[in-house]
Design a protein around this nucleic acid. Structure first.
Length: 334
DNA sequence: TACATTTGACCGAG
DNA sequence: CTCGGTCAAATGTA
């Protein structure tokens, strides 16, 4: 990505985003503690600060010529209609993983597919952390032009429940701590059948919601997409169930269980929108985009990406009554 | 013993 | 023919 033209404004933007990141970390820690009135209040305060900081970041990003230009360019290419992660996005010189993808197996292209880039931080060195589904490795291949082999996984319940979900995991060339994960197909296995070995969440619904959020946190580190995300959050009309990308159409959320913590079937084929229990989730995709942008932009600056260990943020619920007059949805802690 | 993983062979699209 | 994706036997592990 182009590194020239670093401006003070951009540095300030990054600084803001770093603060957002820090707040998110603090929120995560807070949410891990047993809920009581005081901690709920603190969470609300943190959320308020995050929202405010993010809002400011958006404003700064929109004033940044390069980001704004990229955003404008990509704004004409709605995220929901963005090319499949497997297709050539035109910006994948840093993602050989993408470029190498769509040469074969057109038959699989009809599947839902979703690429996420996840950090191995906090997980084993062998790969990203568990995403909540149980996977069985069925193959590994050295990929032409890639330093690291690609591993192929299928759902453990493929045989017992005919679950077609598969994923491919490949360590990125440039950062051994990052993995590109491509999910194919939806899980049709029942959630109860997917062993959730992770700790019990205080609020399973909220955990599912945060998993979606976290998915977006790690979806990509491409600056242009980050700019588009900012544009989407700041300028595009809120998504409605109508505009919520349908499952099976390369929805950014359709199967975004990033390795790191999806849990119990939040990617099940239950709702047209990604998170069961959130019928109107689509209207809140904006925040996901924004935070994704935060992660991406900070990565753009060589800062550590928000890693998958953030996933356990588990207690958000989007306030659906919030007036979307502003760019940001509000959050509350149930 | 019942799983999961490894790994070379095979298949099929381009 | 190349190469990505899958299969399945061999092997490992709890």
């Amino acid at each position: 990505m182009a590194e020239g033209g670093e401006s003070g404004g951009r540095a300030r933007l990054v600084s803001e985003l770093v603060r957002v990141q820090d707040l998110v970390h603090r929120l995560e820690l807070q949410l891990r503690a047993p809920a009581d009135a005081a901690s709920v209040d603190l969470c609300r305060q943190l959320i308020h600060q995050i929202v405010a900081l993010t809002d400011r970041s958006i404003g700064m990003a929109r004033c940044s010529p390069d980001l704004a230009a990229a955003a404008q360019q990509l704004q004409q290419q709605p995220l929901s209609g963005a090319p499949s992660p497997l297709s050539d996005s035109g910006s994948d010189q840093h993602q050989p993983f993408l470029r190498a993808s769509n040469k074969k197996r057109k038959a699989t292209a009809r599947w839902t597919s979703q690429q996420v880039r996840v950090s191995a931080a906090g997980a084993g060195a062998e790969g990203p952390a568990d995403d909540g589904h149980s996977w069985r490795k069925y193959g590994q291949k050295d990929i032409l032009g890639a330093k690291h082999p690609r591993a192929y996984y299928r759902c453990t319940h493929r045989n017992s429940q005919n679950c077609p979900a598969t994923k491919q995991v490949q360590r990125t060339d440039d950062d051994p701590n990052l993995f590109d994960v491509v999910y194919h197909g939806d899980h049709t296995c029942r959630p109860s059948a997917a062993p959730t070995t992770r700790r019990a969440p205080h609020n399973p619904h909220a955990q599912a919601a945060l998993q979606g959020l976290a998915a977006r946190l790690t979806v990509t580190t491409d600056a242009a997409i980050a700019a588009a995300a900012i544009a989407a959050a700041a300028a595009l009309p809120p998504m409605t169930p109508d505009t919520c990308p349908a499952r099976g159409a390369s929805s950014p959320w359709s199967l975004a269980s990033p390795v790191g913590s999806d849990s119990n079937g939040c990617a099940q084929g239950v709702s047209p929108c990604p998170m069961p229990g959130y019928a109107d989730w689509g209207s809140h995709g904006d925040l996901q985009e924004v935070v994704s942008a935060c992660a991406a932009v900070s990565d753009l600056q060589g800062l550590p990406a928000l890693d998958s260990d953030l996933m356990p943020l588990e207690c958000f619920v989007f306030d659906q009554s919030f007036d979307m007059g502003g760019a940001m949805p509000s959050l509350f802690y149930p």
